[in-house]
Computed example of a mutant assay.
Amino acid sequence: MNFASLPMYDLPELASATGAWWAGLAAHMQRQGIADVPEVCAVPDDLERHWCSPNLLFSQTCGYPLTHQLNGKVRLLGLPVYACKGCDRDGFYSSVIVVPGSSNLFSLADCRSARAVYNTDDSMSGLLALRAAAASQHDQADPFFRSLSRSGGHRRSLQSVADGKADVACIDAVTFALLSRIEPELVSRVRVLGQSPKVPGLPYITSLTANAETVERLRTALRQAMADPALSDVRAELLLSGITFPDPAHYNVILDLEAAASRLTLA
């Protein structure tokens, strides 16, 4: 039995739209002759195990897992393009660097010795983006930030900064745009200092065992779903505007960023 998931940008307020997007994708997959397309998405407890399963038909991951723990274990299908500030038409995106709206921090240099917060250890947009941004200001052995805490999610990081419990965080541009619409009061309590370096966005993947014919059918289904007029409202709600099919080597920019910032001690 195949299974699928859409675990990225899975805000509770978007559950209906995410379900409708999967239903549309699934219908186009079935029209392409793909067998055993799940009716609903799974909600896995162990994402890495889920992604590495030979029964994975479709999912979305982050660029950092793709270049690290999933390297050589999954197949890149395509790269969705998002219509929001901080995202380019080629699918590259950045994170926004946020501080409390009432703070006296007006540049990244001002954040030296500040309290930083990030979402998860395997996040390009939360942790590595923060590291890369700090490395652009600091190349010494002593720590850049006074403290560094893990929140468990971008929304929690944003809440921590808005509440003044942390001074700075990097928030995925798509998440920030979605929350600006869903929870404007929260976003209004932070101020954007700038953006992190741009990297390829969050890719759609399938099992490494998928053959070339299945991969091409999945990509055709993605093209058709992104152009389907019946799904235009759902795509707009999720900020989806297109699909690209990059060479997997494009994601090596993440490894380059990590290497360039490897000497930096965050806290």
Rank of each mutant, 00 (worst) to 15 (best):
M1Q: 00
M1K: 02
N2K: 07
F3A: 07
M8G: 08
D10M: 10
L11K: 01
A15M: 02
S16T: 13
T18W: 03
G19V: 06
A20F: 06
W22C: 09
G24N: 13
Q32Y: 06
Q32E: 06
I34Y: 10
D36C: 01
P38L: 00
C41E: 09
V43A: 12
H50G: 13
C52N: 11
F58T: 03
S59I: 05
N71W: 14
R75C: 11
L77H: 13
Y82V: 04
Y82P: 06
A83E: 12
K85F: 15
G86C: 09
D88A: 12
G91E: 01
F92Q: 09
S95C: 13
I97H: 04
S103K: 04
F106W: 14
F106C: 13
D110I: 13
A116E: 00
A116M: 02
N119T: 06
N119Y: 02
N119S: 09
D121G: 15
M124E: 14
L127C: 00
A129Y: 06
A129G: 05
S136Q: 15
S136H: 12
Q137E: 11
Q140A: 01
A141G: 08
D142N: 06
S147R: 05
R150M: 15
H154Q: 14
R156M: 15
Q159R: 03
A162Y: 04
K165N: 04
V168W: 03
V168P: 01
A169I: 07
A169V: 08
I171L: 04
A173M: 01
A173N: 01
V174R: 11
F176R: 00
L178Y: 12
S180R: 05
S180M: 05
E183L: 08
E183D: 13
E185R: 05
V187L: 00
R189I: 02
V192R: 07
P197G: 11
V199T: 06
P200V: 03
Y204W: 13
Y204N: 11
Y204S: 08
N211H: 08
T214N: 08
R217G: 04
R217T: 02
R223N: 07
A225C: 08
M226E: 03
M226A: 07
D228R: 13
L231G: 10
L231T: 12
D233C: 09
E237V: 07
S241D: 06
T244F: 03
T244Q: 03
F245H: 06
Y251G: 00
Y251C: 00
I254T: 02
L255A: 07
L257D: 10
A261N: 05
A261V: 11
A261F: 08
S262T: 09
R263H: 15
L264T: 12
L266Y: 05
